[in-house]
Amino acid sequence: MASIFVQDAYRLQLKLFLYEVKQQQLLSGVRTFLKVYSTISLGKLANYMEVDEPTLRTILMTYKHKTHAVDSDGKIISNADVDFYIDDDMVHVVESKPVKRYGDYFLRQIVKLEGVINDMDWVKLD
């Protein structure tokens, strides 16, 4: 009896996983088109993605859902490098925020600090 529950749980997890993989493929496709266009009609985008408009609207809302989160203050924030909004039947792509490169900044600061320390060591030796 327990074996049946394990198999059912396995099948459910597999089904959910495959559904998520399919969603991610669609989202990757819509993201690719959004990066190319600043505005595009829903009909044209649906044609490019080979889906009907209601399906495209579902894909776009799924994209919004998957790329937004709620922060600790309760504000909705975007994790996406490409964002958009729909006005009538036009999709308007919003400028994406440049990715902040904190790692590069800190590495440059470390190199500068090492230079200052080396200069100080030379001063002590004199």
Score class of each variant (00 low, 15 high):
residue 81 D to Y: 03
residue 121 D to M: 06
residue 117 I to A: 13
residue 87 D to S: 10
residue 88 D to T: 10
residue 88 D to Y: 11
residue 100 K to N: 01
residue 112 K to G: 00
residue 106 F to H: 06
residue 93 V to G: 01
residue 113 L to I: 05
residue 74 G to R: 14
residue 110 I to P: 00
residue 98 P to V: 10
residue 121 D to S: 04
residue 93 V to I: 13
residue 87 D to C: 06
residue 115 G to D: 11
residue 72 S to L: 12
residue 92 H to N: 08
residue 63 Y to N: 04
residue 118 N to E: 15
residue 120 M to I: 02
residue 87 D to A: 11
residue 74 G to M: 14
residue 75 K to L: 11
residue 112 K to D: 10
residue 63 Y to Q: 11
residue 86 I to G: 09
residue 108 R to T: 03
residue 70 V to L: 15
residue 118 N to C: 04
residue 78 S to P: 02
residue 63 Y to P: 01
residue 110 I to D: 05
residue 100 K to L: 07
residue 94 V to R: 13
residue 120 M to H: 08
residue 111 V to G: 00
residue 109 Q to V: 01
residue 86 I to F: 10
residue 78 S to L: 01
residue 108 R to I: 00
residue 105 Y to E: 06
residue 118 N to S: 09
residue 76 I to E: 15
residue 90 M to A: 05
residue 101 R to G: 02
residue 71 D to M: 07
residue 68 H to V: 05
residue 117 I to N: 06
residue 103 G to W: 06
residue 115 G to E: 12
residue 69 A to E: 13
residue 90 M to E: 11
residue 73 D to N: 15
residue 76 I to G: 04
residue 92 H to K: 07
residue 65 H to V: 09
residue 119 D to H: 07
residue 71 D to A: 06
residue 88 D to M: 09
residue 105 Y to D: 04
residue 97 K to T: 11
residue 118 N to M: 07
residue 116 V to M: 08
residue 89 D to V: 05
residue 73 D to A: 12
residue 114 E to R: 08
residue 105 Y to W: 04
residue 76 I to V: 15
residue 67 T to S: 11
residue 86 I to H: 10
residue 100 K to S: 02
residue 90 M to L: 12
residue 118 N to D: 13
residue 73 D to R: 15
residue 79 N to L: 14
residue 101 R to I: 02
residue 92 H to G: 00
residue 90 M to K: 14
residue 121 D to A: 03
residue 79 N to P: 00
residue 106 F to Q: 05
residue 81 D to T: 04
residue 117 I to R: 12
residue 70 V to G: 03
residue 75 K to D: 10
residue 77 I to C: 12
residue 99 V to I: 07
residue 108 R to K: 08
residue 117 I to K: 12
residue 62 T to G: 12
residue 119 D to N: 07
residue 106 F to I: 03
residue 118 N to Q: 15
residue 63 Y to H: 12
residue 81 D to W: 01
residue 122 W to K: 04
residue 75 K to M: 06
residue 96 S to H: 10
residue 82 V to I: 11
residue 82 V to P: 01
residue 72 S to Q: 14
residue 64 K to V: 02
residue 122 W to P: 00
residue 67 T to N: 15
residue 115 G to F: 02
residue 80 A to C: 03
residue 101 R to C: 01
residue 89 D to G: 07
residue 91 V to F: 09
residue 66 K to R: 15
residue 76 I to R: 15
residue 70 V to R: 15
residue 112 K to F: 04
residue 83 D to I: 01
residue 87 D to Y: 14
residue 84 F to K: 06
residue 70 V to M: 15
residue 122 W to S: 05
residue 102 Y to I: 02
residue 68 H to C: 06
residue 79 N to A: 11
residue 81 D to M: 05
residue 108 R to Y: 08
residue 80 A to V: 03
residue 97 K to W: 01
residue 86 I to S: 11
residue 103 G to Y: 12
residue 84 F to V: 06
residue 68 H to N: 13
residue 102 Y to G: 02
residue 111 V to R: 10
residue 94 V to I: 14
residue 67 T to A: 12
residue 74 G to K: 13
residue 114 E to W: 02
residue 80 A to R: 05
residue 120 M to R: 03
residue 64 K to A: 06
residue 77 I to Y: 13
residue 116 V to H: 14
residue 81 D to K: 09
residue 94 V to C: 04
residue 99 V to L: 10
residue 65 H to I: 09
residue 89 D to I: 07
residue 75 K to W: 10
residue 75 K to Q: 14
residue 72 S to Y: 04
residue 100 K to G: 00
residue 74 G to T: 08
